[in-house]
Design a protein around this nucleic acid. Sequence first.
DNA 1: GTGGTTTGACTAACCGGTCAGACAAGGGGA
DNA 2: TCCCCTTGTCTGACCGGTTAGTCAAACCAC
Lengths: 207, 207
Amino acid sequence: MTRALNVAQPLLAAGEQSPKQEELLRLAYRLMATKGMHRMTLQDVADAAGMSKANVVYHYKTKEDLVLTVMQWVLERVAARVVQATVSAKGRDAKIRAMVDAIFVDPRRNRDFYIVYAELIAHSSRNGRFADLNGWFREIVTGQYADVIQSTSDRSKRSVAEAAMVVRALIDGLFLQWLEEPEWEARHREYKSLCVRSIIAFLDSER
Amino acid sequence: MTRALNVAQPLLAAGEQSPKQEELLRLAYRLMATKGMHRMTLQDVADAAGMSKANVVYHYKTKEDLVLTVMQWVLERVAARVVQATVSAKGRDAKIRAMVDAIFVDPRRNRDFYIVYAELIAHSSRNGRFADLNGWFREIVTGQYADVIQSTSDRSKRSVAEAAMVVRALIDGLFLQWLEEPEWEARHREYKSLCVRSIIAFLDSER
DNA sequence: GTGGTTTGACTAACCGGTCAGACAAGGGGA
DNA sequence: TCCCCTTGTCTGACCGGTTAGTCAAACCAC
């Protein structure tokens, strides 16, 4: 059940970063969310981190590598939180609630994450490295959903995989709509609630 | 029931374009899907359309206007197809099947559409004009889902709106996963089938 | 000729990445 | 202890290439 915890790092050996490097990733991540990965320049990152542009390039060879490292760093953290949530809760509904809680953390962070994630998805179709990262993340998260469903029902393997896809679709799809919401900050709770209810309703529907 | 058909154009008076202009939009759309809206240059569009870059600027003032016009043009076509599908089918399940059919047209076109749409969503958070366009599209499509659900059940108004959001989440969410699929062309049918089944399962679950 | 099109040439800005060298921190060797 | 050499980190200046947008002139249909 905890297998996903030990999944190897996907691409770059980004793994553990020093506090200083982690701070730079955090700043770059914030910039990507606000300006977009294309409009964010190396100079922006350098300014935010209080260092020269040349030094950013020195540490992260190219801009693409930097962006990839940032995304990997974020995805690892989110994936770990999802995995953590499922192991600590008992029972199907509790696990689902915990998973959704792990994803719907707080409005601001959620927003940043899904904006960046939307760009990752769009870019995956054009760049294999982004596609690989995306695929790695997808396997972990959907795998977690599948584990929860399998451990609390007697579905066939195929049925479990399908249900996990549907669960993921509900979460991602509702998030996308929430992103469009003008009052996204206030509506966060409603969407979270709707998310849990619709997942449980769907899983119950086929019993 | 057909109210959405007459919804006014959202932003630019793009409405009807001459065949020549429409061809340019189609070419630009293809470019946006393959290269992304940021990497697509005015020169790319000009080359594809067999005209000078200056002429592209002459017709569409700025690049942002061009991109916006292209997106609006595509969104109008998709929205019209969804609306059309719902009026021509009878019965809840048939309407749902028709709507999904209207969206899952063919792999290539679907892929182009959702890649561009993902960029629209990501960009909406940073640019009000894109957000407005997105909101306009969202209202039409989700409104259609709501109409179908309302006309075939006795839910409360709130419940209808929520169910429509869930339906939309299922469609968008499954599409996003399908985009990541390496064998997206072959899997198109499976995803379409899963989409219809999961929607019906969900709608049945609360009766 | 007049008004709407179309174009090539041009510009101003931007941006990713290079490079030569500065600076600090060890690390022997005498 | 002092000196020199290496090594990793960091920087300012710079370059080559790209791109959105301008403009004056040409073109064309009526």
